[in-house]
């Protein structure tokens, strides 16, 4: 039997249930290795099947231009559609969780010990937002200072912005 990806002799055969359907892939040693198939952990047949098998459903990384034919729900931030979600069971960006909140709730039911987060909250998040806000404020003050030709004040503001930017970097 030949490898599904090249013409070498297939030596690795995989069968897996993907969403209730039996899928089979045959690979040669080189292709199996390249696709990480020999590692039982990092690998899902779905990825092999979806990710560039001749005649497969297409790669996860492409088709961002696809338009949802169904109910047309689509993430404004990244263009991810409901169909994409059904296909890959993953999301396009962090805003997708708001866009597809109903689907999220269905998906995570029974997946974890709970449905709402307990644990670490980014402290930095607050600090960062505060600092960005402060920089914005200073920038508009700087513009004002420049347009009113108070250069001494402007220099002071500029230094302060620089300081904040440095902490950030």
């Amino acid at each position: 039997m030949k490898c599904d990806f090249c013409d070498q002799k297939a030596t690795v055969f995989l069968t897996q249930l993907v969403e209730g359907q039996m899928k089979k892939v045959c690979l040669c040693e080189a292709c199996a290795k390249e696709r990480g198939v020999t590692d039982p952990t990092g690998f899902s047949l779905a990825d092999v099947l979806l990710g560039g098998l001749p005649g497969g459903a297409g790669s996860i990384t492409m088709s961002s231009s696809a338009v949802a034919p169904g109910n047309g729900k689509k993430c404004d931030t990244c263009g991810f559609t409901l169909d994409d979600l059904r296909r890959v069971r993953r999301f396009g960006c962090s805003d997708c969780y708001a866009t597809f909140s109903e689907e999220v709730n269905q998906m995570i039911r029974g997946m974890h010990k709970g449905v709402s987060h307990v644990g670490k909250v980014p402290e930095g998040l607050m600090a960062l937002q505060f600092r960005n806000q402060r920089i914005e404020e200073l920038r508009s003050r700087l513009e004002q200072a420049i347009s009113s030709e108070s250069y001494e004040e402007a220099a002071g503001i500029r230094d302060e912005i620089r300081n904040l930017d440095e902490v950030k970097g």
């Binding site: 969780y97 987060h117 909250v121 930095g124 902490v167």
Partner: peptide, 17 residues
């Protein structure tokens, strides 16, 4: 977190692919 803004939701926690 001081330099990168991570995706976080108060209910869902850190948002992942």
């Amino acid at each position: 977190e001081n330099s990168l803004q991570f995706a976080f939701d108060p209910t869902l926690g850190y948002l992942t692919t």
